[in-house]
Nucleic acid binder design. Structure first.
Ligand SMILES: [Mn+2]
Ligand SMILES: [Mn+2]
Ligand SMILES: [Mn+2]
Ligand SMILES: [Mn+2]
Lengths: 220, 220
DNA sequence: ATAAAAATTTAGGCGAGCCTAAATTTTTAT
DNA sequence: ATAAAAATTTAGGCTCGCCTAAATTTTTAT
């Protein structure tokens, strides 16, 4: 029903709206899609005609119920394929996103549900992002950012906010991957950088910029 | 490089030309692509401009070396995904073709080579069709048709020439799948229908039309 | 409150891949 | 050898997603 271009817009609107909470601007969409604002306007009119978005001229855009269902479906496919590539094909977590951008448009529901079962119904992808269920529910994982942890506390690494390959590669080198146990040894007041103990290895340093993009949960 | 539509034309030209042996006519392509002859002519001009086919007006079309490489690449992807769906996801052999028609256009070579390894480098797909290698070589399997076997001989089922789901379902019910051992008990002179013994089960009847679409090799 | 700046939409156009209708070329039948 | 039939190409047009340039609306600054 929704074309490849339409699916990409819906997914992007979902992400930029903060899971549907706020209106998304034409310019924000143009920037992320690498297209011009005029092209975005064209597409928003088409999505509105198909009842996939609420759109009033100059007022920004929001997903309808139908639009959100399509977006979650696409996100589900994307994340399941990422799990497949990492768990079954041996890809690294910094390699899979561009390929998942293509695979996420394969429409067969039978395929994706069988893939889900084959993978053992994973609840999150290699980057710690939650995987929507077949029914279209997004598991809400409420994590903190590493930069908000105080010195002396122990936490578990749960995911990332930034998905750039270079960032992911840096984290791998530091041993900072989902599941890693992290103790905050010291916080530098001046630049908010941290010294961490990661999984029993020697202390390592991370900048505030890095800590701000790492999701954690407090160890119980 | 080649668009989805171009990949589909190249693959189809490969198949209709009998693996590149003969010229393919505009009308033959129009029939298979479910488009009009005028549209095919448009596309052939574009493929010729990209040096993917040899094309002279009114003379039919043939793949170039480059075109054949693309075609074999697409066929490789199609058949590997079919193996994946049947072997790993539990699909039946009559269900996978339409989904593979979409998956075959996912371009990543890294993905397809890792999939190949994950599947154990299969040499043929669920329908018995050979899988081109990463290097682009098509393993030539020289099989006979079941309709050419004489009474009293024992053969092994190796594949099919017809891929329609209804035909495949019929074969499954009869136990006629790749690997099955088949003895020809009787051949009816009048309509060339056969009575077969398949894998030790009770004798079953197949029409000439069916036998003509089954590939076999003689048991040694 | 108003003018400048920024954001957004409208207008007109382009390539890909398809269409119908009308030529044109090739093949087949006499 | 020629005329009818079949196959193919050309001409002109359509939709989808995109573009640039110009208008319009909203926001920000004074
Ligand atoms: Mn991703
Ligand atoms: Mn991810
Ligand atoms: Mn197939
Ligand atoms: Mn097949």
């Amino acid at each position: 029903m929704a074309s490849l271009a339409e699916e990409n817009y819906l997914k992007l609107i979902y992400h930029l709206s903060g899971s549907g909470a706020e209106e998304v601007s034409t310019n924000a969409l143009a920037e992320q899609t690498q297209t011009r604002a005029a092209s975005v306007t064209d597409m928003l009119r088409k999505l509105a005609d198909k009842n996939l978005v609420h759109y009033k001229k100059y007022q920004g855009v929001r997903l309808t119920q139908d639009g959100q269902e399509v977006a979650l479906q696409v996100i589900r496919r994307h994340r399941l394929w990422e799990v497949f590539m990492v768990e079954k094909l041996g890809f690294r977590w910094d390699e899979v996103h561009p390929i998942a951008e293509e695979l996420e448009h394969i429409a067969s529901e039978e395929l994706i549900n069988r893939l889900d079962a084959f993978l053992g119904f994973p609840v999150s992808d290699p980057h710690g992002d939650p995987i929507p269920t077949a029914a279209g529910a997004m598991p809400s994982a409420e994590y903190e950012k590493l930069c908000e942890v105080t010195a002396g506390q122990q936490v578990t690494m749960m995911g990332v906010l930034e998905h750039a390959a270079s960032f992911l590669q840096f984290l791998s080198k530091a041993g900072l991957i989902p599941g890693s146990v992290v103790s905050v040894l010291e916080i530098n007041d001046f630049d908010r950088s941290m010294i961490l103990k990661i999984n029993e290895s020697a202390p390592s340093f991370v900048s505030y910029e890095v800590a701000r993009n790492i999701l954690i949960k407090f160890s119980v």
